[in-house]
Each structure stands twice: as C-alpha cells, then as structure tokens.
Design a protein around this nucleic acid. Structure first.
Lengths: 113, 113
DNA sequence: GACGTATATCGTAGATGAGCGATAAACCAT
DNA sequence: ATGGTTTATCGCTCATCTACGATATACGTC
C-alpha cells in the first residue's frame, strides 16, 4: 500500500560515449552495498532513507553517500515527502543498463560447439 | 581466419552472495578502458594483447593491469600462443552479467501509463 | 648461450573510494 | 522561537585504483 511511485526526474548528463556511459553505470553498481540498496528498493517499490539505513549494517552517513552515488548515476530518484525523503529505483535507467549489457552480447551464448 | 577460439577456462571463485557477485562483475566493467577492451575483443573475436595496447591510448603496463582485472573477474580469458597471448571475451561470463542484470528487473519497463 | 620480442609484475605517485563521527540543513511539532 | 527528527554534508583516516616507467619473465631465433 505504498503511497505513490516517485515522480520522473531522470536528470543525468547525457554521455556521448557509450563506453563511458556503461562504465559509469557499472561503477555505480560496483559495490555490494549499492546493489543491496537497489534490490531493496525494487522489492519495496519505494521507501524512506531511514528504512535503507536500518536494512544495512552501515552508518547513516555511509548509506547517504551510497545513495548519492546511485542518485548521480540516475539509478534511483529521491522525492521529499515531509520530513522524509522517499527513494525509488529508476526502472527506465535500469532498463538502460540491461540494454547496454545486451548490446554488448550480439547473440546469446547458445551454441558453443 | 582467426586460429581458434580460446579454450574454456572459467575459473572464478563461486560467490555465494549474488549481490557480491554482481558488484564484482560491475566493478570490473566500471572503467571505460575495460569496457573498450571488452568491446574490442567481442568485435575481433580474439586478439593478442599487443593489439589491445595499440588500440588504447594507454601504456602497455596499464593495459596489462586492466586485462588482469578483467581476467580475475572471469570476463576474459587468455591463452598462450607462442610469444603472444591470445585474449578473448568469455561469453558465458558475459551472459551471466546479463542474467544478473535481468534478474534485477522483475519486468521490463513496458507499461508506464 | 645471447639477443630481440611480448607480456606480466614491481614500485611509486596521485586520485578516488569507503567508512565513520560530528555537524549542518530542512522540516514538523509544540 | 525551541526542540526533536531525518537526511545531507564535512573532515578525517585508511585502503584501493589508475597510471606510468622500469624491470622481470617467458618465448623464439640466431
């Protein structure tokens, strides 16, 4: 019974170089805590930052730092909701990750004979 | 007329934690030079390390370092061929990246109405 | 064996990242 | 305005990453 999905605010500077773009996205995913945050957000659909802090064995400031990295990569979005900040995964952006990963692999592994 | 595909030697310690696994793979992809190397290898199907060095604006030792990171992540494999070392992308491992990325997204973004 | 070639590793300097506690900023309630 | 709550930012330390030149290792040739 979550109130609402976060509003669309995907503002990431559009990289001209696709290698750069993939590298940046991958780097943002390159830490287990950030993967956990992302997975948690996808499970919960959305939640306050405090819930994420409670969910991880890290200090509040550290989690906030990881959230910043994910935010700057465009993978999550935050919306102020009174005292809290409501975070949610940016599924459009995640789809882009998938798209880039799929573009790297011309065909599925299929026949390796 | 490439001599042969590299032999299968995918020896990466099997991580129990899928978050860790994804984070490690993403971290290996988290540098533009490494993305370029990987894309180059997929285009060329396989090539000697020297060709990769020539293809990038980096010192030989730096490229060798990046190759090591990719190797340790299991994303590429190297086979000694006389004086050279023949590198190729490990498509099984790359498929795993895709698999993990897809598992993160329960459904495609599809309907955003 | 001596020499040239190809690749990896070492050593180092500078940049970036991870983690924390402390503090600031923004908000709500009283 | 004061005080409590939530999140972001600062300052710091320690570790890791990136890049390079120099050197080591392994191979093929002579």
């Amino acid at each position: 019974m979550t109130p609402r999905a976060c509003p669309p605010t995907p503002t990431v500077d559009p990289l001209s170089d696709p290698d750069e773009e993939l590298a940046r996205l991958a780097a943002a995913l390159g830490h287990p805590a950030r993967v956990r945050i992302l997975r948690f957000l996808l499970e919960q659909r959305e939640c306050f930052a405090g819930a994420i802090v409670d969910h991880l064995p890290l200090a509040q400031s550290t989690v906030s730092q990881h959230l910043k990295v994910l935010r700057e990569a465009g993978l999550i979005r935050g919306k102020v909701d009174g005292l809290h900040i409501c975070y949610c995964a940016d599924e459009v952006r995640l789809a882009r990750v998938r798209e880039l990963a799929e573009a790297m692999l011309p065909t599925t592994v299929g026949g390796h004979s």
